[in-house]
Amino acid sequence: MFEVENKIRQEAKRVLENGLVELVIGWAPGSVPFRTTPVFIDRPEDVDKLVWNPVCANNLAVYLPKIAKDRKVGIVAKPCDIRSIVALIQENQVKRDNIYIIGLGCAGVVDPSRLELAGVRLSDVTALDWAADGIKVITLNGEQLLKSTDVHRDMCLACTKREPALFDVKFGEAVLPSEVKPRELPELPEERQKYWSEQFSKCIRCYACRQICPNCYCEVCFADRVEPKWTAKKAVPEENWMFHATRAMHLAGRCIQCGECERVCPVGIRIAELMREMAEAVKNKYDYEAGDPNEEAPLLGTFRENDVDPAQHS
């Protein structure tokens, strides 16, 4: 961990010093040892703020459309964050030439609330690190080794793309999960509807899922429009359904599966589960994966004459 961290710092320093970029976006230590916070570094002497550890959760690509519009920006990015960057480039939200990617091989990110469930007292934690077969938690009372499957985020447990797909420089080794966590969506339609009714009824409409999503960059979101009014502001299950269903549709074929929406949700809605389901449908029908640099155009911005035909009679 420290080796990679040092390399990130050196590289950030190098690109800032030789003027390759004006700014480097990365993670800095959070207010507590089990969190990190986004940091924007514009002076080479500040690079020691940068860190790399199992709680570097934020997908920093969310800042790019605004910050890298007309200047060169360096970004420290996990493989999922890089897929976001690729999607943003494909959708013309940022220019490849404006982004300098410090790519990282990933071994999965920790969900701090799972540490608590695994019996760790959060106030005792002093540091976290990856270990050979799990996560090492250093506490005031010594070290503790936890199984990845117990403390990683769900999205990480389902992630097999842990090598950066696009980068200018790459550090760190990817570690693949021993098994891929299956989706938990029930099979029967009635049960699915029940599941989502329960999930969406919790929504408080804080829009954290939308704001944290690198692909939700619309200037005015449909949910904020007054005329036409797509969905009312009140947090009732039906309107929440309308918001989440429409958002899922807008992200179909675009979501790169970073799971940030689910991480930030204060009421634990399993949004990423829906996104995964849609991504799989996209993969099956179009052999397309969002955020893959080999794709030429966004899925819904193009077509093939022999595409799957949804018409029921023809």
Partner: peptide, 8 residues
């Protein structure tokens, strides 16, 4: 696919 995923 979305309608299916949502159980409609």
């Amino acid at each position: 696919d979305l309608l299916k995923a949502l159980g409609l």
